[in-house]
Amino acid sequence: MKTLKLLSVVVFVFALSSFTSKTIINGYNVGDKATDFSLENIDGKMVSLSDYTEAKGFIITFTCNTCPYAVAYEDRIEALNKKYAPKGFPVIAIMPNNPEVKPGDNMEAMQRRAKEKGFTFPYLMDKGQEIYPQYGATKTPHIYVLEKTTNGNEVKYIGAIDDNYKNADAVKEKYVENAVDALLNGKDIKVKETRAIGCTIKV
């Protein structure tokens, strides 16, 4: 009887691990090459990194409508795009949550939010949740700064936007800005990885 119970527990744990395998993420490390994607934008068009022929790199931002951390950073993400898109590093925002779990993150809600906030960057849906596991994103927001090279889009920075999600005026370290500025000036990035602060991605 004990053996049967033990076997049942083992089977249950194995089934659970299989069910949650999408949440067990390795993803990219700094220095890895990020593969391209084709995701639907809020305007119905498909967007890929290869569309940006003149870009020097990208600020890939996994974000959403429903996470208070993501909402707190919306204005800062918009500011990043306005500052760096003209310099060759546009923001590409990707909504990674399962809209069946978070209806407030469905395409219609994304469209409304983008219009309300006046987003000037693409806001893409990771339909099928295939892209965020490739990157290794676990939070919203979670940032990946990529640099376009002859060998592909190289991951140069991973983590948080800055060191204070509560108050933009109290920020001391602007991680993403520092990383992009270093790349634009041909310098080494001093802080290449930080811990992303936000809500867990809903699967």
Rank of each mutant, 00 (worst) to 15 (best):
T66V: 10
I94N: 02
K22F: 13
E130T: 14
I92D: 00
M46G: 09
F121K: 10
S38M: 07
E54T: 14
V91E: 09
Y52G: 07
A93C: 15
F89Y: 11
F62C: 01
K127C: 00
Y73N: 01
S50D: 11
R76L: 02
K82W: 08
S17D: 08
G88Y: 06
G31M: 05
Y84M: 01
V101I: 09
I60K: 04
K33N: 15
K115Y: 03
E54K: 08
S17W: 13
V10D: 00
I131M: 12
E100R: 04
I42C: 09
I92H: 00
D36N: 14
G128P: 12
A70H: 02
D126A: 01
Q134E: 14
N29R: 13
Q111G: 04
S18Q: 15
E116P: 05
T20F: 10
S21M: 11
I131R: 05
T120D: 14
K56E: 09
N81P: 01
D43V: 03
Q129W: 08
P90N: 10
V13K: 08
I131G: 10
A34Y: 06
F12Q: 07
D36H: 09
Y84E: 01
I24L: 12
G88A: 05
M125W: 04
A34C: 08
S50M: 11
N98M: 08
F19W: 13
Y123N: 04
L39N: 05
Y84R: 01
Y123V: 03
